[in-house]
Write a protein that binds this DNA or RNA. Sequence first.
DNA 1: ACCGTTCCATGAGCAGTCCTCATACCGTGA
DNA 2: TCACGGTATGAGGACTGCTCATGGAACGGT
Lengths: 309, 309
Amino acid sequence: MARTTEGDLAPHELRILVAVADSGGFSSAAQALGLTQSAVSHSVRGSEGKIGVVLFERGRGGARPTPAGEKAVTHARRVLRLLDVLAAEARGAARAAGADGVGPEAAGPLRIAAFRSAALHLLPPVLQRLRARCPGIEPQVRIVREVGRGTAGEVADGRADIALATLDGSTPLPAGVVAHGLLEEEYALVHPAGRGDPRSLPLVDWVENCGSYTRAWWAAQDWIPKATVEAEDDGAVLSLVSSGHGMAIMPALSLMGAPHSVEITDLGPERPTRRIGYVTTPELAGSAVVRALVRELRAVGTRSTAVAR
Amino acid sequence: MARTTEGDLAPHELRILVAVADSGGFSSAAQALGLTQSAVSHSVRGSEGKIGVVLFERGRGGARPTPAGEKAVTHARRVLRLLDVLAAEARGAARAAGADGVGPEAAGPLRIAAFRSAALHLLPPVLQRLRARCPGIEPQVRIVREVGRGTAGEVADGRADIALATLDGSTPLPAGVVAHGLLEEEYALVHPAGRGDPRSLPLVDWVENCGSYTRAWWAAQDWIPKATVEAEDDGAVLSLVSSGHGMAIMPALSLMGAPHSVEITDLGPERPTRRIGYVTTPELAGSAVVRALVRELRAVGTRSTAVAR
DNA sequence: ACCGTTCCATGAGCAGTCCTCATACCGTGA
DNA sequence: TCACGGTATGAGGACTGCTCATGGAACGGT
């Protein structure tokens, strides 16, 4: 008799599944984990035996997850994270036995995914407060471009615990995550200082800038820019503008710390805005570390929503 | 250097932690798991070493979890359950590759906690539909008294996947669970048939009956019962009433299938109601088995909210 | 105060697990 | 055909996790 169910997958087996999915092959997964290709092959075969299902299609280019494999890898990431949380919260509970709520006892690594301007201008004060209040938390910030599934995708795939993301209604959230709004960020016009009418300059745009926020505003204007040039990211846009090569409509966070060679003008009461929020997984939303960060985000984020350097 | 973090806990270690917490001692846990007391002792010590925290206070009479141990055991139950779900969903995905949504491919055990009247009168048709649609799911219903943390506590502690609970605003939900409403259940007056004015009889109450639902209604009445007697549960209440020893204000579910020796009278437009909903953990909310049950709950629950035998 | 009971702790030894090394296999492109 | 990416597989060694046997500590009855 071929026993179909043999037992649960051990953490190291889960890690191997995740590594194979991430790296796209047994050999590269082995390298990433500091193991042998053979060990990975044996382990995956063993996991498949335990579940009773083929998890990866092996081929010339490596290994690709089957539908069952996709499910398994997604869950594997969550289980691994939950194991981390288990240890971290148990340690925290031991430190401050009895004290309830999110206090200094929250501890452990906290993986944050953020788009560039949030990581540069929104997170620093938040993390400073967090460090002061919960010294046991070790925040790890990873900058992710807000393209494709963006920062929220990192959370959905288990690569981050919480993401700072732009929440527009048009692009739907990945499945299995929850989002909450933090602040409404205002757009402003930025152009070279002391150069007269910025309308004569080309508009500089960048890939991550989601047009849906500003489209309505443009439609209400009685002029359109003569030309549009595309830059790598919002930092490059600002650099282009400051050197006099164009003007741009940029969100407040991207304009923090802008050089004095640019002028920032308010777009008036009808200015476009975009919604910034955080995204996390439901099972992490209740964990002490995530709750601690969210509290600081709320405390800091409610101010400084307007344009200011 | 004493390395504080050594690695993740393996499933068998988690199982041992849970068994120790459940059985209240190393020896009994060993017996329950078919292991030696020595193995349990070694394993727990190893887990404590990995986390870096004492998880159980040992003493005569057995072992009791420390606060850290409580957290660890709760998470352990969830991790173990998530591992089950991983395997079950991967198998399901392999069976119906590509088909999305909750279909017949959902499979595996589903642990349901319900209060008495819900288990007796609400669940049967739901489970019948569920069985027809998802034959692979094996529902396990456990009746839990709605006292203390009630059915929701079972979910919070990882002993159930989903709970049917009464959602009143007064008693807060345990941390780390999510709840959704299903139906508004109406209270009605039940009294012995053909006995004249029920107001002359004592009011029968029972422990699980949360007074907060009916308090406002009682305050609006121009009479109060002469006496109140307490019964074990709603079944006992109904039995007392049917044998002529009193009258009661009971929710609709408890009155389904009431004998003809009792008379049920509507309390009018201002009648009290209580909210019935389900409670689950965030990480299970997206799983196929839970989603399948919730869909049937919604389908069945939206009817039959009024009193009817 | 003694003993018996009932817990948990600890050390030694054995069995199974998991990793590595070496090698075989398979499909592709020059 | 050969070289070159990939994975599969078999044998052996280190390690882990279990059991057995024994020790220690705390209580209760006498």
